[in-house]
Design a protein around this nucleic acid. Sequence first.
DNA 1: ACAACAAACTAACACTTGTTAGTTTGAATA
DNA 2: TATTCAAACTAACAAGTGTTAGTTTGTTGT
Lengths: 190, 190
Amino acid sequence: MNTEGTRRDEIINTATKLFKEKGYSAVTMRDLATAMGMKAASLYNHINSKQEILKAIIISLAEAFTQGMETIKNSDETVIRKLNLIVALHVDITTKNPYGMASLNNDWMHLEEQLEYYLQLREGYEQDFVAIIKNGIASNEIVDTNPEVIMFSILSTLRSLYLWIPNKDDLDPKILAQNLSDVLINGINK
Amino acid sequence: MNTEGTRRDEIINTATKLFKEKGYSAVTMRDLATAMGMKAASLYNHINSKQEILKAIIISLAEAFTQGMETIKNSDETVIRKLNLIVALHVDITTKNPYGMASLNNDWMHLEEQLEYYLQLREGYEQDFVAIIKNGIASNEIVDTNPEVIMFSILSTLRSLYLWIPNKDDLDPKILAQNLSDVLINGINK
DNA sequence: ACAACAAACTAACACTTGTTAGTTTGAATA
DNA sequence: TATTCAAACTAACAAGTGTTAGTTTGTTGT
């Protein structure tokens, strides 16, 4: 046996970076091979298809979000605190794999067999999110604006973190999460 | 002479929709031709290259943002009001061409000769934006948090509008802009 | 020394890519 | 009626695509 997948993981990590720069469709197996210092055919000793790489990148991330949301949803916290935890979840996952988040956001439509499953996870996540917001409105914790506008506004920012975090590695994730929570929840008006 | 470019414009509009669904690289000239009800070679009676289509989509949008920002920047308004105007600018442009915004956000890296120019416009836009926020902090109009976090948070939401607006055409742009301004500036805390 | 094996290689495949050249069609203009 | 012209067509190209088959290489444990 092995340390399980070391070489395969290197390929997936390299692909992740290339996908974030040019997008899945624009990256060829020969590009990937060159970046790995080998020939395209050699990649197939470690992976079964280009598709499979995309799946490995996206599905694990999507499941991490679903699992995190499950925990938050079932926790015994105020709505504001749950929103804090959602922000922290996104900052955490994105900090650990910012390049993969690019594929999650931009290349999900090139999943094939796994497309439906991915959309399911995404749909579930958004339903849980909007339910939390509706609870907050009902319990008078948050302002009574269109709940979907609120979710969209917060989620757009969190989904774009991958564009930003790699350029700001001087910023501590804890502090970033705190600042973001502040701005998203309390606004910027003085 | 002509109504100038009618057929060419149809091709660009059709391409815009296809690009938003699959991304620039994944759309072939044969896909585009099929969607237009013609053969790939016939497209070249109206356009010079695939590249040129992308350029036509992206650069005009980027210039619209730059021009809008110029007007706002030079206007004689409070910082909060300027931010309202920026929100309205994004809602306006995105409502008029939501599909094109997908390319602006996701396919800009496939510009070639125009890439540098695009990046220039984008850089300028962000500098103007962050300058407005810094003014607001200095004049005590807005809260003293990291100005880049504030800009990032607002701009991420505005840049994601294209994902959302096409599904919500029951929502009046004026009302949407108002709701968004509220949430982005005043937050959601009660 | 030998067997086993991970990991690279060369060569080739069937197909798809953007694009060009030259031709046909049918309606508007002279 | 003859001419012009936009806009479609067929045919083909050179290069690039993901992937397969079979082979070589070098290390590791027996």
